[in-house]
Simulated assay, not measured.
Amino acid sequence: MSHNLELLMDWKAIAKSVAPTLGAALGGPVAGTAVKFLAGALLGDEKATEQDIANTILTASPEQLLKLRSLDGQFKLKMRELDIDVYRLEVEDRKSARELGIKGGLWVQAVLSFVFISGYFFLTYLLFSGSVEVTPAFEQTGTLMLGVITGAIPMILQFWYGSSQGSKEKTQAVKP
Rank of each mutant, 00 (worst) to 15 (best):
R80S: 03
A39E: 03
S17R: 13
T56E: 09
Q74N: 12
G142L: 12
M145L: 14
S17G: 07
A173C: 08
G32T: 13
L66G: 14
T141Q: 05
G73W: 08
I153Q: 00
A13K: 06
I84G: 01
T171D: 04
T124Q: 07
G130I: 10
K170R: 14
E63K: 07
K170H: 10
S96K: 06
G101W: 02
K16Y: 04
I14L: 12
M79T: 00
D45Q: 10
I84L: 06
P154R: 01
G162H: 11
K67F: 09
M145C: 03
I14V: 14
G130K: 09
G23N: 05
G44M: 04
G105C: 11
F121I: 10
G130D: 12
D83F: 12
L38W: 05
F159R: 10
S17P: 06
G130W: 12
R80D: 02
F37Q: 03
D10G: 08
L100C: 06
S163M: 09
Y125L: 11
A60N: 00
T33E: 14
G44E: 05
K103S: 11
D93S: 10
Y120K: 08
G73H: 10
L157E: 00
K170L: 14
D10L: 04
L157Y: 00
K95P: 00
E92N: 13
Q172M: 11
A48M: 07
S164Q: 03
R88G: 07
E63R: 04
L71Y: 13
L66A: 15
E90P: 00
L123K: 05
K95R: 12
K47Q: 14
I153A: 01
L58P: 07
S163R: 15
M155K: 07
L58V: 04
D85A: 05
L89K: 14
L112F: 11
P176G: 11
S167R: 11
A48S: 14
E63A: 08
P176T: 04
V108L: 13
R94D: 11
L126W: 02
L157V: 02
I156P: 02
L71R: 13
I14R: 12
K175R: 15
S164Y: 02
F128H: 12
E6G: 03
F114R: 09
V132P: 09
N55R: 15
K12T: 13
T143P: 00
A48I: 08
A34D: 05
G28Q: 01
R69A: 15
S164N: 08
L144Y: 07
F116N: 08
K12V: 15
K12A: 11
F159D: 05
E99R: 02
V174D: 09
V86Y: 03
E169L: 15
V35I: 15
S70L: 13
V91D: 03
I117R: 07
L144F: 09
G101T: 05
S163T: 08
L5C: 01
L42G: 02
A48D: 09
K95I: 00
A34E: 06
F121T: 12
R98G: 03
L8K: 04
T171G: 05
K95L: 03
A24W: 02
L106M: 14
T59E: 05
L5A: 10
R80L: 03
E99K: 01
N4H: 01
A48Q: 09
P176W: 09
L26W: 05
G28H: 02
R98N: 04
F122Y: 13
L157S: 00
R88N: 09
G151S: 13
K175I: 12
V108H: 12
